[in-house]
């Protein structure tokens, strides 16, 4: 008897979300099945990997990844151009770290100017991220949305404590929006409901269930992402159908496995190889559990992930 591959068919569908200007748009999502199971349903768009850059020098990044950008990271425009031209980035995620009250407290106006400068220098889609300070993000991201008006960016992250103003700004300037909640599927659903109740189209939302690094709660993120996908596909829950983002780099490049040198912990092996593997494995896991967009730092980790996508698509 020949083996018949069992197939699941789902009533729901992951929403397809595009970002970027006409001519250089990228689309994520749109699948009718779990990640990469193209024998079972449609998987029309490959996951997108965006290179993370910052609006200030990445002094807190470990040496392995900081050194890659040492000639360009003093200036976000050169950094962005380096990612686009030298590394072949498909998208860039600009994190406005220096607006954080503890990291320089730069004004919303200054952040807006940085965004305008970066947008003028690149022709690939831009993701604009705040400093993850609830109150400050509410003003910074509003100014950012205005500065990027017409560029169809992804802005984020809107959270329970600040979503109202950020949603209104994304709505007014026609951007896509990341809604983030802290590793809890019910809170993720609730935030998506609250945002859509403000009149924001669910077709413009991206869910961030909060990422985590290998060895540091990765399995929680994996499970939440997987359950979000199943709720969207199997239960056809419209609030759980937006694409998912995995903000990988910032969680990976701070754990001791990406910092400790091979001399200090010889049994862990050589640092560069180990830390790149750490980001690769974390990102690949997020992708397998449902992430459609990954934000990453090390070019060799990005290369590994792109190669995996090539093999799986």
């Amino acid at each position: 008897m020949s083996f018949v591959v069992p197939k699941e068919s789902f009533g729901g569908k992951v929403l397809a979300v595009d970002f970027g200007k006409e001519g250089s748009k990228l689309t994520i999502g749109g699948e009718t099945t779990l990640p990469f199971l193209a024998f079972e349903g449609e998987v029309p768009n490959r996951p997108v990997v965006a290179y993370e850059i910052q609006d200030c020098a990445p002094e807190d990044w470990p040496e392995t990844v900081q050194s890659i950008y040492k000639d360009v990271s003093g200036d976000p425009v050169s950094w962005a151009k380096y990612c686009q031209e030298t590394l072949g980035a498909k998208a860039i995620a600009l994190r406005l770290v220096s607006t954080h009250p503890d990291r320089g407290d730069r004004s919303a106006e200054a952040a807006a100017q940085t965004i305008k400068d970066v947008l003028a220098a690149i022709n690939i889609p831009l993701i604009i991220l705040g400093s993850n300070h609830i109150e400050k993000d509410a003003t910074v991201l509003v100014a950012a949305a205005e500065a990027a008006s017409g560029y169809n960016c992804i802005i984020g992250k809107a959270q329970e404590g600040n979503y109202k103003t950020i949603v209104a700004a994304a709505l007014a300037h026609n951007h896509k929006l990341i809604a983030m909640s802290e590793l809890d599927i019910n809170l993720a659903k609730q935030l998506n409901i609250l945002i859509t109740q403000m009149g924001f189209d669910k077709e413009k939302l991206i869910t961030d269930p909060m990422c985590s690094a290998l060895g540091y709660g990765l399995e929680y993120t994996y499970s939440v992402m997987e359950r979000i996908r199943l709720a969207g596909l199997a239960q056809n829950d419209p609030t759980m159908q937006p694409p998912i983002v995995g903000d990988v780099g910032m969680y990976v490049w701070k754990v001791k496995e990406t910092v400790a040198s091979g001399n200090d912990v010889p049994e862990w092996g050589e640092l560069e190889e180990r830390s790149i593997s750490w980001e690769t494995v974390t990102a690949t896991s997020m992708m397998l559990s449902g992430s459609n967009l990954l934000i990453m730092r090390h070019p060799r980790a990005v290369e590994n992930v792109e190669k995996t996508i090539d093999e799986l698509m």
């Binding site: 599927i185 019910n186 809170l187 659903k189 609730q190 409901i193 239960q235």
Partner: peptide, 12 residues
């Protein structure tokens, strides 16, 4: 278990 809980589930 046919739908997912959220505080506003009755609105959906």
């Amino acid at each position: 278990n046919k739908s997912l809980y959220a505080d506003s589930y009755l609105d959906m």
